[in-house]
Design a protein around this nucleic acid. Structure first.
Lengths: 203, 203
DNA sequence: CGATCCGTTGAGGTGCGTCAACGGGAGTGG
DNA sequence: CCACTCCCGTTGACGCACCTCAACGGATCG
């Protein structure tokens, strides 16, 4: 795969892919964080996911992207021309198998997110989000506690279907209850993971 | 594929797969409608999708199902042992390719649904839902108007992140505005598709 | 040292949830 | 044939979780 890859960087806030543009490239995140989102015509935004190192961006079978993505922190990416990647799939059935496995995980994650968006309260949403970040950090071999929280309150709100203010208030509540503790450098200590887990499911 | 398939039926309300059970089978819907859903411990429910003929159920790379599914109408299914299906994938790379394509569409649909759940109003949700059913009926080669609406108000609510009452009230409003018309046998005539499309995006 | 962005906090409003009542259709039993 | 129950959809009255609007302080940057 290295044969067809180019390395690209992106600054914070700069679009990496834009909804409706030709889907010519697939990306693999090397470093930093991205957000993937969809917009309504009046500007309402839903972030459908945050991408961290190891995640793929732009895997689609349409000819245009169905979403936009931009950097949350400075980002390093590996870029593949989609045509060449598809040619490569013909030769390497195992690669396709791994992509299918990824896609299947992504579908499961999307279903969890639908449950969150449709049926959870603000507190449950925030608690679930913190636990999700912790779990994903562990999957990447990073410390699961404290966790990095590089995105803004606004971004968190747009991921959880809340406003900035509600995110802020709810985080403050968790802090007051001593379930979490805000640290330097956009990091969060989960001081009572069991309680957080119970809060995330409404018990 | 016919070699490894068995045909099974299911009555309305009977579980076809249950969250947490071993994921031993994959199903293909032959006739009727199913709902796929996840539950919270206190009974809150999110329906993540309705399945119609041609759709797959149970494609996962985990060893247990992450969701439950049951029949909305009497259902005919084609059942495949997952092990045998996976063995078949080794022989038929093209089958894997088609499954990946399906998965990619499912991810795109899930992202649309996240936008709906997180950011749309009740009216926008209902309008989007009716248009979705119309589009999917067309994809299956069925009339796109009037559409079939075999699921209950409660199911629609659990799909859209609303209550039965709000679904009922919102549908009544659309009826009063003469954007839709309820017909015999759980069917709905979309009398003003343009208006419905505008309503679905909040314009 | 102004300008901008972000997070926080407060006061007040509202869209949708909750609770309750009612009517119609389907099934069941006499 | 009616009487009864159950389930579903509808409608009304009311409440509340979250949104909206506003103000303010701290950090960053020219």
């Amino acid at each position: 795969m290295a044969r067809i890859a180019t390395s690209v960087d992106s600054e914070v806030g700069r679009p990496v892919v834009s909804e409706g543009e030709p889907a010519d490239h697939v990306f693999n995140v090397i470093s930093g964080w991205l957000k993937v989102f969809k917009l309504l015509s009046d500007g309402r935004r839903q972030i459908t996911g945050f991408l961290a190192p190891g995640d793929f961006l732009g895997l689609t079978h349409n000819d245009t992207y169905a979403y936009s993505a931009e950097a949350v922190t400075p980002v390093g990416l590996c870029r593949f021309p989609r045509k060449k990647l598809e040619a490569l799939l013909e030769e390497l059935p195992d690669l396709e198998h791994r992509l299918l496995s990824r896609a299947s995980h992504e579908i499961a994650a999307a279903q969890d997110q639908m449950l969150l968006l449709g049926r959870k309260t603000a507190t449950e949403k925030i608690a679930s989000f913190l636990l999700l970040l912790s779990r994903r950090a562990a999957d990447r071999g990073q410390p699961e506690n404290p966790i990095e929280l590089p995105m803004s309150r606004n971004d968190i709100g747009d991921f959880l279907g809340l406003t900035t203010e509600t995110v802020s208030r709810t985080v403050t509540q968790l802090k007051t209850k001593q379930v979490i503790k805000l640290l330097e450098g956009h990091r969060v200590q989960l001081t009572d993971v069991d309680r957080l887990r119970r809060l995330s499911e409404g018990e």
